[in-house]
Computed example of a mutant assay.
Amino acid sequence: MAVLFVVGLQAPFRSSREFSKKSFITCRFPEGANDYSVTPHINTQELTMSYIDGIVTAVPKANKDAFIQHAETADAAFMEWGALRVLECWEDDVPDGKVTDFRRAVQATDDEVVVFAWIEWPDKATRDAGMAKMMQAMDSDPRLNPEKNPMPFDGKRMIFGGFSPVVDFKK
């Protein structure tokens, strides 16, 4: 059974392969389509979507414990400021590409790993307010003060950006 998740709304599709809830959400799958072969059109103008900050950086392999401690300390502030989830991921299976790849994107050296992270916010307004608080707290909050909680990596090679989800499949 396919399930549509939209802003916390969970509703199973009926056997007719059609789901309609609150007139602004209508999804129809053609007969014979499997659950993930067709992307339904959803009018997102009336829906609130989460907002994602994505981060990729290179961290010296020897600094794994220091990185985890730094992230646990700093990420707690994002949670206080409205983030729904913060996930920090240590490189495990990151292949070298022929044209570009994660390692090249952050100029990782042989003694470094790639860390891929994201912060999920309930919406862009909450994210913008959280980031404003972060900028204000850089000197006053010890969790974010580089002198009290130094980054165990070269922040100049960190890449980051904000993203609006366009597809969100969940089980």
Rank of each mutant, 00 (worst) to 15 (best):
V6Q: 06
G8A: 08
G8I: 14
A11V: 15
F13D: 06
F13E: 05
S15I: 03
S15Q: 11
S16A: 10
R17G: 13
E18V: 15
E18R: 14
F19C: 11
S20R: 11
S23A: 11
S23L: 11
I25H: 02
I25F: 10
I25Y: 04
I25L: 15
T26D: 04
T26W: 02
T26F: 00
T26P: 00
F29D: 11
E31M: 02
G32D: 09
A33V: 09
N34K: 06
D35P: 03
D35L: 11
Y36M: 10
S37L: 08
V38D: 03
T39L: 14
P40W: 03
P40E: 12
H41P: 00
N43S: 13
Q45A: 11
Q45S: 14
Q45D: 14
E46A: 13
E46V: 12
L47R: 07
T48F: 00
T48I: 14
M49Q: 15
S50D: 13
I52T: 12
V56W: 02
T57W: 01
V59G: 09
V59N: 06
V59E: 05
V59I: 15
K61F: 04
K61L: 13
K61M: 13
A62S: 14
K64Y: 10
D65M: 03
A66K: 15
A66I: 02
F67D: 06
F67S: 11
I68M: 10
H70Q: 09
T73D: 07
A74T: 12
A74K: 09
A76C: 02
A77R: 11
M79C: 05
A83P: 09
L84A: 15
R85E: 15
R85S: 13
R85C: 07
L87C: 03
L87F: 03
L87M: 09
E88N: 14
W90F: 07
E91V: 07
D92G: 05
D93T: 12
D93E: 14
D93P: 00
V94P: 01
V99K: 06
V99Q: 09
T100N: 06
T100D: 13
D101A: 08
R103Q: 08
R104P: 00
A105I: 05
A105G: 10
A105F: 01
A108V: 09
A108R: 04
A108N: 10
T109N: 05
V113P: 01
V114L: 04
V114D: 06
A117Y: 00
I119G: 05
A125F: 00
A125H: 04
D128R: 07
A129M: 01
A129R: 10
G130C: 02
M131R: 09
A132H: 05
A132E: 11
M134H: 05
M134T: 09
Q136K: 10
M138N: 02
M138P: 00
D139V: 06
S140K: 11
D141T: 12
P142A: 02
R143Q: 04
L144P: 01
N145K: 01
E147T: 11
N149H: 03
M151N: 01
P152K: 00
P152Q: 10
P152D: 08
F153Q: 10
G155H: 01
K156Q: 12
M158E: 07
I159L: 14
I159K: 08
I159W: 01
I159H: 02
F160L: 12
G161L: 02
G161T: 03
G162S: 12
F163E: 00
P165S: 12
V166G: 07
V166S: 09
V167I: 12
V167C: 03
D168C: 01
F169T: 07
